[in-house]
């Protein structure tokens, strides 16, 4: 029998990162299936950013391994980086370049087949046309986020990693971004890993949530199942239970 088994989109196996005596990520293991949207949640210092850094090969693990589409990111990152992309409000695009110039540069870096056509398409999809020839540094926060998302989608990635994609955006713009992400995932069967402090956003977008605390994954389930298990009304209350250490009691009570 010929069974074609695809590797998980992202897989971590006892992934650990230590900075001196401090353990940022503590032997976490998880597997994310292709086409899913997974939320990576946790308080400040929980290890989310370090985990994302290791997935993107920006941070070298102390031990354990992480693979993307079957490729070990410590050894074979360049075999898969062209199928990934990333967006974060903490990473900028060059301010003095226009939106079109920035997208053109990244289109070429990702060997996109027809860069001008791809830019036109993104400009239409993400409503960039009115400021596409304006310098990126002169845009509003909402416009900058849309441009950063356009950069993250320039290569139509299989794996899209988003670090607080709607931080500091007004509700209307944030909703608009979420809708676009939903469409992109549905159209491209893309895998999305989303780190966010916005619990409503996570409930809306994610099929699954990895809850991190002090470098460990302390819970892992679908948002609605977590809410039910913890006997709470929403994911924010579950988050607070876990962050404040009252989660175990609530979870047991619910079970």
């Amino acid at each position: 029998m010929n069974v074609n088994v695809s590797p998980p989109a992202i897989e971590a196996d006892r992934l650990t990162k230590r900075y001196g005596d401090a353990v940022a990520v503590d032997a976490i293991s998880f597997s994310i299936q292709a086409g899913s949207v997974t939320g990576l949640l946790g308080g400040n210092g929980a290890g989310k950013t370090t985990t994302i850094g290791m997935i993107m090969s920006l941070v070298a693990p102390t031990s354990g391994r992480v693979s993307v589409l079957g490729y070990d990111m410590a050894r074979d990152a360049y075999r898969v980086l062209h199928r990934m992309n990333f967006e974060s409000p903490y990473v900028d695009l060059p301010h003095r370049l226009t939106v079109r110039q920035n997208l053109s540069v990244f289109g070429r870096l990702y060997s996109v087949a027809n860069v001008p056509e791809r830019i036109e398409r993104l400009a239409a999809d993400l409503d960039l046309k009115s400021f596409i020839d304006r310098q990126s540094g002169k845009l509003s926060a909402g416009q900058k986020t849309r441009v950063a998302l356009a950069k993250a989608l320039i290569n139509e990635p299989d794996i899209l990693i988003l670090d607080e994609p709607t931080a500091s955006l007004d509700p209307d713009t944030a909703d608009w971004i979420r809708s676009h992400l939903e469409r992109y995932r549905a159209t491209n069967n893309a895998t999305i890993l989303l780190a966010s402090h916005n619990m409503g956003e996570v409930e809306r977008l994610c099929d699954r949530v990895l809850m991190m605390k002090r470098g460990k994954i302390v819970d892992d389930d679908a948002p609605e199942k977590l809410i039910a298990r913890y006997g709470r009304q929403n994911l924010e209350e579950v988050f607070l239970d876990i962050a404040r250490g009252t989660g175990a009691a609530k979870k047991e009570a619910a079970e």
């Binding site: 360049y78 062209h82 053109s104 070429r108 060997s111 290569n155 491209n188």
Partner: peptide
Amino acid sequence: MSAASSPAFSFSRIFAMVMRH
């Protein structure tokens, strides 16, 4: 999506960076 492989060396990527500057 762009599943095609990425070349190990690309003048186009160098050109992209030169254009950026």
